[in-house]
Design a protein around this nucleic acid. Structure first.
Lengths: 152, 152
DNA sequence: AATAAAATGTAGCCTAGGTTACAAATTAAA
DNA sequence: TTTAATTTGTAACCTAGGCTACATTTTATT
């Protein structure tokens, strides 16, 4: 009969500490996923607006590699969150908050890409990795990247 | 009556290119989310097994900052995926595949943390950022990190 | 102006990952 | 050995983010 390994000395408290710092890190990570989506969308909207003159659902769908249905639903959420303004059958516009967020993202993205390339990572791979990494780079780490880029 | 901005010259094809490289990057990113979870779990299981002697549902829940219910459901998926072996009311064990994955993750995590610290990022922040970044570091980029660490 | 094509919206279904509430099994203590 | 506490499991619900299929509205063409 397999018996559970005793984790505590008799009369003592449990041994497994939650390591609350790491727990917090992981929690933050999950919370951030919603923000990541928002960032991808506002970045795409800003870019389309700058490039094509307006951002529309089909363009976003193509750009993000999802169907227009997904875009639609996500836009509804982003509107609730105050990042975009949409009207049925019309183009999508960023609110001031959305614009600010988009700018921050674009800049951070560029920094991460440049930094990776400065380490000798190939362009296409730097782009690819940056797409994932950028969302997890804290201001402190971003500053470190910039510092290093300056020292080149 | 607001009219849509014309995107095409008369008789021409649409202008918005899907930029299929970026689309692929974003698609990959989403696909990878499932893998991230797997990695977090096997890492935690490996660590608990090494430290405490066995990994159990409550410990994982505490460690990952979620309820035991979430752990339970996720473990079922990881078992289907071939990473863990579980029996009701018993400790959780990694399969060989799970063990290999855990080792890779632990090593990569360490590299990322060391690299960030080598840039002057504070320990606690390096740990925090690494938790998110590690999942998006390609082998090429990881190699670049190691190269740089060697050059210290 | 009528018709065809494209874009947008909506309904309904799926998985992943989170939750609370409650039931059953296992372990620890009296 | 009972009893109490802890652990594990299960049911049912939520959000986010995918999807297909179909209806509606706009835009483009004839």
């Amino acid at each position: 009969m397999p018996r559970r390994i005793k984790k505590t000395a008799p009369g003592r408290k449990p041994v497994v500490r939650p390591s609350s710092q790491q727990v917090e890190n992981l929690r933050r990570l999950r919370r951030d996923r919603a923000v990541e989506t928002a960032q991808d969308y506002v970045e795409a909207i800003a870019d389309l607006t700058a490039t094509v003159g307006e951002a529309r659902v089909v363009d976003l769908a193509r750009r993000l590699g999802v169907t227009h249905v997904t875009v639609n639903r996500t836009l509804a959420r982003l509107q609730r969150a105050g990042y975009v303004n949409t009207k049925p059958y019309r183009a999508i516009f960023l609110t001031p908050a959305g614009s600010t967020l988009a700018d921050e993202c674009r800049q951070r993205h560029q920094t991460v890409v440049s930094f990776l390339r400065s380490l000798g990572v190939a362009d296409s791979i730097a782009e690819m990795d940056a797409e994932g990494i950028e969302h997890h780079v804290s201001p402190e780490t971003l500053a470190a990247f910039e510092r290093r880029l300056g020292k080149q």
